[in-house]
Design a protein around this nucleic acid. Structure first.
Lengths: 227, 227
DNA sequence: TAGATTGTTAATCGATTAACAATC
DNA sequence: TAGATTGTTAATCGATTAACAATC
C-alpha cells in the first residue's frame, strides 16, 4: 500500500524530526525537513502524502504532530521485544546499542550456542543458551530476531526462529538465509557496503586517469579505458 | 554505466561464487548461482550481461573465472586501505571483523578523539588520536573512511575526512552527514532496519486482526482498520 | 543432432521529479 | 489580499521480469 521505498525512508524522517524537536523547532517546511533528512522536498512531500495530510498549506508541518503520525505509521509507538542471537564482537556491540531503547525496541534476551559465553552478562543482560530461544520467544511474544552469528550458523538460527513463529529477521551474518513466504529478512552487510564504495572509488580513480590521459591526447574521455 | 541496483548486487554474487567454490563446485548455471545469491535467474543474467559475456550457452559459468571477473569489476582484486574513526563498541566490532581482510580491505588505522582510548590495542592495531588522520591518510593513501562515532560527532569527522581527500565514507553513526558532490556516503543504520521490519510486522498483525474481524463480521477485510 | 542454458529484447512495474493548482 | 507552502498530477526515469532467439 505504502511503497517500499517510502517505508524505508519513514524512519529517516522520524529521526530528522526528533533532531529538529531537540533543537526546539516546533514547525518546519517540507524543505527544512527534507534537508535534515537528506532527500529532496518533492520526494518528502510525496512520501508523506501516502500517510495522509498532516501539514498546513502556506505554513508547514507541526514537528511533534508529524513525528507522532510517522511513529504510529511505522509502529514504534509500541515497544517491540527483540532477541539477539550470537554474542560475539558484533552481538556485543548490538546489545550495547543505546538507539534500541529510544526507538521502540527492547532487547529481551541475548543467546549464544557457546557454553563459555552463557551466563556472562552483556549490557546488563545475562547471555542464555540458544536452546532457550523457544521459551523466551513464547514468554515475551518476540516477533523480531537479530542474527549476529558467523555465516555458517545463520541458516540454522533462522530456521529455528521461523519454527517458533518469529516473522521478522535482521541478519548481520554474511550469508543469504532462505525463509518461507511471510517472513521478512533484512540484511546488513558491512563488507558488501564497502565493496559498493570500492566500485565507485575505482571509477573515480579511473575516470581521473582517463580524463587526464584524454586531456593529454586531446581526445574525448569517454573513449578511454575499458580495460 | 552499470545500474546502481546491479552494482549493489555484484558483491552478493561474489560471495555466492566464493561459497560455491569452497564447496568444490567448478561450474554453475545462472539458476544455481541465483539460488545461492537469493535472487531470480533472469535478474542475475541481466546483471551479469552488463559486465560482459562470461558464460557459455548450454553449459553455464566457470565459477573461478566469473568470480575473478566480478572481483575485477568491483575493484577488489586490489587492496583498499581503510581507516575506522570511533572505537566504541561498534568500532571495536568493526576492527575485529575478519571479513575485511578476506574481501579486499585492510584496516590501516583506528582513531578516536578520546585520550583514554588512545594507545589501547584493538585487533592488534593501536588506537591513535583523531588528529593523526591527515598523516595516516597521506601515508597510506586511504580513500575509504568508516565513521563509527556517536551521532553528534559524525558531521565533523566527515568534514575532516573530506578535507584530506577521502572520497568514500561508510557511516554507522545514526545521523545524516552532508558531503560535497563527488564524495560517496553509504549509511548503515541498525535502528532504521529494525523500524522497517517493525512496520511490516505491524501490518502482519493488523492484517491478521482485520482479516479475523472481517471474517467474524462477514465483510471485506480491506475496509477494516485505518485507525 | 537434441538438449540445455546464456544473453538480450521488450513489456511491465515501481520510483523519482518538476510543476502547479489548492489553500492556508 | 498577497505570499507561502502543501498535496497531487503527470511525465520521466530506472529496475524487474518473462520470454525466447542465439548458440554451445
Amino acid at each position: 500500500m505504502i511503497p517500499e521505498a517510502t517505508v524505508a525512508r519513514l524512519p529517516v524522517y522520524l529521526r530528522a524530526l526528533t533532531a529538529l524537536a531537540d533543537n526546539g523547532i516546533r514547525t518546519c517546511s517540507s524543505e527544512d525537513l527534507a534537508t535534515a533528512a537528506g532527500v529532496n522536498s518533492a520526494k518528502l512531500r510525496k512520501d508523506l502524502s501516502y500517510l495522509g495530510s498532516y501539514g498546513t498549506r502556506g505554513v508547514g508541518y507541526d514537528v511533534d504532530y508529524l513525528r507522532y503520525q510517522i511513529a504510529r505509521e511505522i509502529g514504534v509507538t509500541q515497544d517491540w521485544p527483540v532477541v539477539i542471537v550470537g554474542i560475539g564482537n558484533l552481538g556485543h556491540a548490538l546489545a550495547n546499542y543505546s538507539g534500541f531503547r529510544s526507538r521502540g525496541f527492547r532487547v529481551v534476551a541475548l543467546l549464544d550456542a557457546d557454553p563459555a559465553l552463557v551466563g556472562r552478562t552483556v549490557a546488563d543482560i545475562a547471555v542464555r543458551p540458544f536452546d532457550d530461544l523457544d521459551e523466551i520467544v513464547r514468554e515475551h511474544d518476540v516477533a523480531i530476531g537479530v542474527i549476529a552469528t558467523p555465516a555458517h550458523a545463520a541458516q540454522d538460527v533462522a530456521d529455528r526462529m521461523v519454527g517458533i513463529g518469529i516473522t521478522s529477521i535482521l541478519n548481520f551474518a554474511p550469508a543469504v538465509v532462505a525463509v518461507p513466504e511471510g517472513v521478512d529478512v533484512r540484511k546488513v552487510d558491512l563488507s558488501i557496503e564497502l565493496q559498493i564504495l570500492a566500485y565507485h572509488e575505482q571509477r573515480k580513480a579511473n575516470g581521473g586517469a582517463e580524463a587526464a590521459a584524454a586531456a593529454a591526447d586531446g581526445v574525448d574521455a569517454a573513449g578511454g579505458g575499458a580495460a
